[in-house]
Design a protein around this nucleic acid. Structure first.
Lengths: 345, 345
DNA sequence: CATTAGCACTCTCCTTGCCGGAGTGCTAAC
DNA sequence: GTTAGCACTCCGGCAAGGAGAGTGCTAATG
């Protein structure tokens, strides 16, 4: 199907998509004819357009309007016709600076980059951090957090910090707590959370644990804190930027749907998880994304890594009509920036 | 001025405000006359309305429209005419349940309550947590967070957790770090952050610190981590709910302004800080709130406490036209709920 | 003397009809 | 195969007109 189109046809498609991206208006045959240097007359363009419409790449809002690219049209454009823009030096610098400011905890870094990405692209930006299960621990510590409440703080490589609360744990002296903490910390370093959990359980089975008070205590408390997997995290920045897009600014209903979606972590996860696994940038157009409530949005996202394992992804959410040639390099750059920032942590 | 109005006039004002709250449309003399059992004819009402307009409580969108309450009108209504609704049993239960689910870390609790509040009120809900400077520490711990990076984790009474990163700190053995941590923890318990900082500085001055390695290390690292005050936190839930309000749904510009404001922590802080100090619920109408960019929104907020000291506030942000009789009790209840939840932490 | 009925007036909003513009599809000519 | 020409469709804007809601003023009323 893709190769079923000759060069001329695809060139027309490309111009239509690009014009539509630029203007947000249905584009007519006259416009395209002019844009292509009048090598072809409007009438010819019309014929080609009719073909493209039949093939499912274009649609007409109404009989006498111009054509608008369909999801398939955008898909084809992205896969075969797109020529990426080179990032402006200035934009790269800005991103670097944003990353530099996020010198504090990891979430601050991610927020700054995401925010700037959002502003540069005029779309809402989203970062998801995968569930920490797979991430490697750097250190853990039990801390007193209240009467009969103890907090297990876990620090991952890359700088993510997590808390888990255990309740109803009889009070321990500060000294004891420190010992217990130290013991578990020993056990944890360099493991993933998943591995740590397994290890705790296996140790618990051994005799020794039953007789060594500190060890036993550390293990049972660790087991309690780690029973259920912690969910990943989601950061959304630049919601206001989606109002820059006429498709949202004009349609309150759509706007509401997307704002609601932003309030459901799980929805955002579903939108970005494909990108997380993959090593290259992912663009899902419209219906392709797996979220039924949002058949008319586009997601451009790329995973970022911590060493060899992917720990999350960063991306943009907006209408189908995005400036992909610009936005794709932006997201890629942001993702690679995060990857390098996390490298030496 | 307030007492310069007779009973009849205020009753008319009340009806106008309430009708406007219910319908979001300018209200005319005929409507009010009917609503008041035709005790007064529309013509009389018109005279009264003219008075009210002169006094600044009402305004006319255009000559032949009905009247709309001004900021001053709402203010007067809130201060003198409002009759609070009683919260429905079911709503109280829901709030309790939401608080119960937030059994994990403090931020989860706050988020759940805020979210439900937002949905019940059909407005965006905001929680601010004051800068932790004034809060009392429960425990602190140094944790390894990377090469030459150490994280100071502080747990406050009430369950808030904070991290501060210190960079370029030469590596320490696990054992040493634990000792240092334990030492600082001893020092910290029961103090506010502010007190702890002062104490560290004074201890650092003493001779002993210079000779005791652990102590000296703990103090210098503590000092480094605590140099600058951490900002408070802001949680915003239910942004999508503001689209329920026609004043925002119809005016993209206004919507954008408010969404932008939501992305600036400092703006939200300025909006809610008055409520934080006060012990009673605060309602700022329009121009009264101190944020120039948002002269046309209303904030209903109440502080919540941790023991005797106020640690934050929870509130709603929306158009002037809010159902105050319902929303005020809701916010109050939510705030008191948070207060009790934090009491036994 | 406050209240009210009556009335002329104003302004918005909706409908209707009309026109121009943009764009199309088809056909016939090149 | 391409293109010029043409009839046709549909949208958007604009003006005119009428209904509706509401007002302010005036004069009559209890």
């Amino acid at each position: 199907m893709a190769s079923g189109m000759d060069d001329r046809t695809t060139r027309v498609l490309r111009h239509i998509v690009e014009d539509y991206i630029a203007t947000a208006e249905p584009v007519g045959s006259r416009t395209i004819s002019k844009k292509m240097g009048q090598a072809l007359s409007p009438a010819t363009i019309r014929n080609i357009m009719a073909d493209l419409e039949e093939a499912g790449y274009l649609a007409q809002p109404h009989t006498s309007a111009g054509r608008v690219p369909t999801g398939a049209g955008f898909r084809y454009y992205i896969d075969h016709l797109l020529s990426r823009q080179v990032l402006a030096r200035g934009e790269m610098d800005q991103l670097h600076r944003a990353a530099g400011e996020g010198n504090g905890p990891a979430d601050e870094l991610v927020r700054q980059v995401s925010r700037l990405l959002s502003n540069l692209a005029h779309q809402a930006s989203v970062v998801v951090v995968s569930s920490p299960e797979q991430q490697i621990l750097r250190s853990v510590s039990f801390m007193r957090a209240g009467v009969e409440r103890i907090l297990l703080v876990t620090v991952m490589r890359g700088g993510w910090v997590q808390h888990r609360l255990i309740e109803g744990e009889p009070d321990l002296s500060g000294d004891e707590l420190e010992k217990i903490s130290a013991f578990l910390n020993e056990l944890a370093e360099g493991q993933t959370l998943l591995q740590l959990r397994a290890r705790i359980l296996s140790e618990l089975g051994k005799e020794k644990a039953r007789y060594d008070r500190v060890m036993g205590r550390a293990l049972t408390m660790g087991a309690r804190a780690l029973v259920d997997a912690a969910p990943g995290e989601v950061f959304i920045e630049g919601r206001a930027n989606i109002l820059e897009q006429p498709e949202f600014a004009e349609d309150v209903h759509r706007l509401k749907r997307i704002l609601r979606a932003f309030e459901e972590k799980s929805v955002i996860f579903r939108l970005l998880d494909r990108a997380m696994e993959s090593r290259v940038i992912q663009v899902s157009v419209g219906i392709e994304n797996t979220v039924e409530e949002l058949p008319d949005i586009s997601v451009v996202a790329s995973g970022y890594r911590q060493g060899a394992s992917s720990v999350g992804s960063i991306g943009l959410i907006g209408p189908l009509r995005m400036d992909y040639s610009r936005v794709i390099p932006l997201v890629e750059y942001a993702a690679s920036l995060l990857t390098t920032m996390f490298e030496d942590r």
